[in-house]
Lab assay of single mutants.
Amino acid sequence: MEVRTIKVFTTVDNINLHTQVVDMSMTYGQQFGPTYLDGADVTKIKPHNSHEGKTFYVLPNDDTLRVEAFEYYHTTDPSFLGRYMSALNHTKKWKYPQVNGLTSIKWADNNCYLATALLTLQQIELKFNPPALQDAYYRARAGEAANFCALILAYCNKTVGELGDVRETMSYLFQHANLDSCKRVLNVVCKTCGQQQTTLKGVEAVMYMGTLSYEQFKKGVQIPCTCGKQATKYLVQQESPFVMMSAPPAQYELKHGTFTCASEYTGNYQCGHYKHITSKETLYCIDGALLTKSSEYKGPITDVFYKENSYTTTIK
């Protein structure tokens, strides 16, 4: 009895394709271990004539594949690729409408935090270190965002349907971005203890939790000093293409032309909904596939993004 075979390709990165001759009487799992086709788990399936010449994702289970996976995804987590594939199996079914010149995501599976993050990423200057993220990001900007969303979920250790947080998501993504040249110098002034300067680099240099107003941050924000008295913390120097200011959701007025974009969060910790506000020729609110415009805006804002380049204080 002759062994019926077909020729397929296996890959971990969709760049390096490895030619395989597979036995049609055995499952993919018996031949390769966990195997995925377009995100779908085909591990328990036997090869079919229609699979001839198709590319299958496999887990990096030998040295060659491990090197290829690390170079593309910059992670050695053995569960990463499987999590990416199972997320992709959902995100490829989502709709990605162009809204006001940006790629958004039609609401499904509690994905409003991903839509808000995706919209924000198209408006701030950011370059990702893992080629996987950078490639998928370019495709997302062009309207094909399924891979990018699935990668975000995998890097953030999230599953489809789980509630997510924009600030946490951005923080994970910033860790995989090139923020080497970003720098922030802060000064804390206390009447009792004097003053202390701190220099922050990388992710810490672009994120701040405690106030939404970048102007206020430049002037000074009140913080408790270690001595128990009130101290003032203010920005001395900022070198970065953008800054992200966050605070627990509270009524906040966004003035046209003073910011790049913002995240609105309605609801409580267990259950809520994100919308995205962007400042173009007027203010726009993007909620999944829905767009509304207004000249002014007041609502429960939790993150505001500002364009920056270089700032030095005039406070002496």
Rank of each mutant, 00 (worst) to 15 (best):
T278G: 09
T169G: 01
C227A: 05
Y297W: 11
G101L: 00
K7S: 12
D13V: 01
Y269K: 09
A250H: 12
T314C: 15
G53T: 07
T11D: 00
A250T: 11
D287G: 04
L81D: 02
Y113V: 03
D109L: 00
N157T: 07
A117Y: 00
L114E: 02
T258E: 11
F128C: 03
I277M: 07
L151N: 00
S310M: 14
G29S: 04
L290T: 13
C112K: 04
L37F: 11
T292M: 11
T198D: 11
Y265N: 06
K46F: 14
Y84D: 00
K229A: 14
Q31E: 00
C227L: 02
E264C: 04
T282H: 12
F70L: 11
T198C: 09
D23P: 07
V67H: 12
Q122N: 02
S295V: 13
T314F: 13
P224L: 13
A146C: 06
F56K: 01
K218L: 07
Y36D: 05
E71V: 08
I105V: 00
M24N: 11
I301L: 06
S50R: 07
N309M: 11
L200Y: 08
C271T: 15
P224N: 14
A150H: 01
L37R: 10
G39W: 05
G39E: 12
N147R: 11
S86T: 10
C271S: 12
D180F: 06
P300H: 15
R4S: 09
T5P: 09
G228F: 01
L114V: 09
Y274D: 05
Y72N: 03
E239T: 12
Q123T: 03
D165A: 15
H276A: 02
C182K: 09
Y96D: 00
T302H: 03
G257S: 04
G202L: 04
T10E: 01
A247H: 07
F174T: 00
Q238S: 04
Y73C: 00
T91F: 01
G101F: 00
E168Y: 03
P249L: 03
M244G: 08
S181I: 09
T282N: 09
V12C: 07
I15S: 07
L119R: 00
Q123A: 00
A142S: 12
S279I: 00
M1I: 05
E2W: 15
D41M: 06
S86V: 08
T103Y: 10
Q195E: 15
L153N: 03
K293Y: 09
T302E: 04
I45S: 13
G299N: 03
T75D: 04
K280V: 05
T159P: 14
G164R: 06
E52T: 12
V221A: 09
R141L: 12
G101Y: 01
Y172I: 15
L119E: 11
G288S: 04
N111D: 01
G257I: 02
W107C: 14
N110I: 02
S294D: 08
Q20A: 10
K218A: 07
Y274F: 13
K44L: 05
A150W: 03
L114W: 09
L163A: 15
P130D: 00
K255H: 12
G39P: 01
L235W: 07
A154D: 00
C261I: 04
E162D: 05
P34G: 06
T198W: 13
C112N: 06
A87P: 00
Y28D: 04
Y28N: 03
Q195G: 10
Q30D: 10
K93F: 09
Q251M: 14
A142Y: 10
L186P: 04
L173Y: 00
L235P: 07
V42T: 06
N309H: 13
T103F: 11
K95T: 11
C271W: 15
I105Y: 02
N129E: 14
H276M: 13
N89L: 13
Y84T: 05
Q123C: 09
H176M: 12
I124K: 03
R184G: 10
K127L: 07
N157Y: 02
Y311D: 09
K191A: 14
H51R: 01
K316W: 14
K158R: 15
L65C: 12
N309Y: 12
G210N: 06
V221R: 07
G267T: 12
E296M: 13
T75Q: 11
K44N: 10
I315M: 13
Q237V: 12
S104Q: 04
Y284I: 14
K7T: 12
T282D: 15
A69D: 07
C190T: 03
H256G: 06
E239D: 14
F217K: 05
T282R: 10
E52F: 11
G272H: 11
A205G: 04
R139A: 11
Y214Q: 08
S50I: 11
C182D: 08
T258L: 09
E125V: 06
Q238R: 05
R167M: 05
F259V: 04
N110E: 03
D109N: 05
G33S: 07
T19G: 11
C190A: 01
V8N: 02
K233L: 12
E68T: 08
K218I: 06
Q175H: 12
K219H: 11
Q134E: 05
K280D: 10
K201F: 11
L212W: 02
L81H: 13
H273N: 02
